[in-house]
Amino acid sequence: MKLILRESDRLVFRLSKREHEALLTTLRMSALFPLGAQPISRDAAAGDVVRSAQEDLNQALSDHRVEQAAGITGLLTDPLRCACQASGGWQLTLGPADSDRLLQVLNEIRVGAWEKLGRPDFEKGTRPEITEENFLCFWAFQLTDLFEGVLLAALAGDPDESEESGPPE
């Protein structure tokens, strides 16, 4: 996945056929990871006001997830934004809202996969044992790392990590 054009209101990426398939497969895994029930506060003495906001938060996140899934489906099925090229590759054109939506969904999958892997701390050298059961989680974790990295570098304007030399196709 390479950034081939950056303009103020859009980013254009080129994906190989395999990268496109990997992106679709990764995004489809969203359904495998239910939303985590993270408490709204760590303060045991938090008042009723804070605790009562938990239900609102859970509902808002659930609704948001449905909206994001619909948005991603719309993005990937819109031939103006996700177009098959004669070469067999794909061109993905993201507006600002698309970029954030894709980042959010990829990261949600990343967090879900990480939780299913037992919340390993890779930075501290913790490595989960890869099994047939969790192999797809590990795969999704790695793939989201790749796609998020490219997207973030493009959004940050870091040419070293995201751009490819040469003219756009």
């Binding site: 709204i40 760590r42 006001v49 804070v50 938060l57």
Partner: peptide
């Protein structure tokens, strides 16, 4: 205040960050 803090919490949780609301 509560409303603004709650709003930011919702926005940050949409990005799956580990954020909480504390008094």
């Amino acid at each position: 205040n509560f409303e603004k803090a709650e709003f930011y919490l919702h926005q940050l949780r949409k990005f799956s960050l580990h954020v909480t609301l504390e008094t």
